[in-house]
Amino acid sequence: MELVDVDTQHAYDRIREAIITLELGPGTLVNEQELAENLRMGAVPVREALKLLAHDELIVITPRHGLYVADISLPDLEQISEVRFTLEPLCAGLAAQRATADDLMVLEALRKEQAATAPGDNRRLLDVDHKFHQAIVRAAKNKYLIRILEHFFGLSQRLWYMALPRLDMLPTSVAEHLSMVEAIKHRDEERARRIMHDHVKAFYDQVRDILNP
């Protein structure tokens, strides 16, 4: 998110990252003052940032118990995944229609980076995977889809981090990304859509298994 305020932006970026990477785990109580001190900032920008994060559904503000990091529940997971495997295939299809040569180069670069990353380096693989999905959304050239999915990426990235220690699907995703780039390159909408659907669905199936004991 692009904000005007220099310090609110900084606080927003830092706190959001801490929540997504589970440094601030789901359900953690958030003390504004403490957070401000840790970030070496004033309380006002931190408060502003927390409000924005409440908008992002990463922070919950309760009148009586203060602030806490939003919990993750299985129903949440289902609902988030429903949205993602409806909208992301839509993006993949649009990308197949609209992707420019530059978009394809970016996808290609990310795919190569993913392939070159050591299989055990899950954190980096996740980051590249995230950028790959963002690049496809961007190639779809629809600013509303960009905004909506950015919101859902924020929510689902937390799930990835929770599943991270036991996740091992990334090698297969290398092949899937390759065929997705191929489909977009050949302007094959239908195929791009299908690959994306299966890709996202397979991922959520695995995350569900990991999180569901």
């Binding site: 220099v6 310090d7 900084h10 309380a43 920008p45």
Partner: peptide
């Protein structure tokens, strides 16, 4: 400069 601005704003807020 970003760090500097954040620090000045923090001092102002204090």
């Amino acid at each position: 400069l970003k760090e500097f601005i954040i620090a000045v704003r923090r001092a102002m807020e204090h």
